[in-house]
């Protein structure tokens, strides 16, 4: 059993399948090929927005973990085939894969991720670091600029304090009228690790949550967390406005 992180970036364009969806599909392909393997949630990581960065759509990278028996060659073969099939014609996709057991300098990869949120980086810098850290990094169309975000996606995920979880959770909640759930129920139904308040407090299993509308999670302190804030009736799921800074 090997623990991998896999990230992709710059795969979409207006009106095409989103990068998060493509990442989820790659995860499903790996799961189908290795039923005993484990594929995690996909996390979305916002990168630096600057006029000199020619991103196609949002400049956000997507990352997930896979623990299983597939080899690097098998993972890459499936991921690349899917990227080639699904990426938008105008996209500049990049793919990064790392075996966590072979990653000796985690700090360097995390630092690259942080830098990619704050400044303009180059493909040359990405390839140089990938070679140094034994990260598999490759481009699959267009300018290949997505290698920067893909490598950064690995670093940000590894750092454990960045990103929103792709998708939303359905617990039977209504769109408008909040319904009561215990923290334990939510964790059991969603597979999330915890419920975190916007004040930084992890709630106990017996705390009551009032959920409505879209229930989304974030990746923080190395955990997949439902973010809540104090509302009129108690703890309620965070709004998209509250989630936008993750």
């Amino acid at each position: 059993m090997t623990d991998w992180l896999i990230a992709i970036d710059d795969t979409d364009d207006i009106g095409t399948k989103g990068t998060g969806e493509i990442a989820s599909e790659i995860g499903e392909l790996l799961q189908a090929a290795d039923s005993a393997g484990r594929v995690s949630f996909v996390t979305r990581h916002q990168l630096y927005v600057h006029e000199s960065i020619p991103y196609t759509s949002h400049n956000s990278a997507m990352c997930f973990s896979y623990s299983g028996s597939l080899s690097l060659a098998q993972i890459r073969q499936m991921a690349i085939a899917h990227l080639q099939q699904e990426c938008a014609p105008a996209a500049d996709p990049g793919l990064a894969v790392v075996d966590l057991a072979l990653l000796t300098d985690r700090a360097a990869l995390q630092q690259f991720g942080v830098q990619a949120k704050q400044q303009v980086l180059t493909k040359a810098q990405a390839y140089q670091l990938a070679e140094q850290l034994h990260v598999s990094l490759s481009e699959h169309g267009g300018t290949g600029q997505g290698v920067i975000g893909a490598l950064a996606g690995l670093g940000l995920r590894l750092g454990g304090n960045d990103g929103r979880v792709k998708g939303q959770f359905q617990l039977g909640q209504a769109d408008a009228e909040p319904q009561a759930y215990s923290v334990a129920e939510v964790l059991q139904q969603t597979g999330l690790d915890g419920v975190l308040t916007d004040q930084g407090e992890w709630l106990a299993d017996d705390a009551t949550l009032w959920l409505a509308g879209k229930v989304k999670a974030v990746f923080t302190q190395g955990r997949f967390a439902l973010l809540v804030s104090a509302g009129a009736s108690g703890w309620q799921n965070a709004s998209k406005q509250q989630l936008k800074d993750y």
């Binding site: 998060g20 969806e21 949002h58 509308g213």
Partner: peptide
Amino acid sequence: DEDEQIDDELCSCYNCAYRRWL
């Protein structure tokens, strides 16, 4: 794409496929 939306009110320029962040 739903994962790129940041406004709870769907009809918002902040949720539009044609906006590019600066």
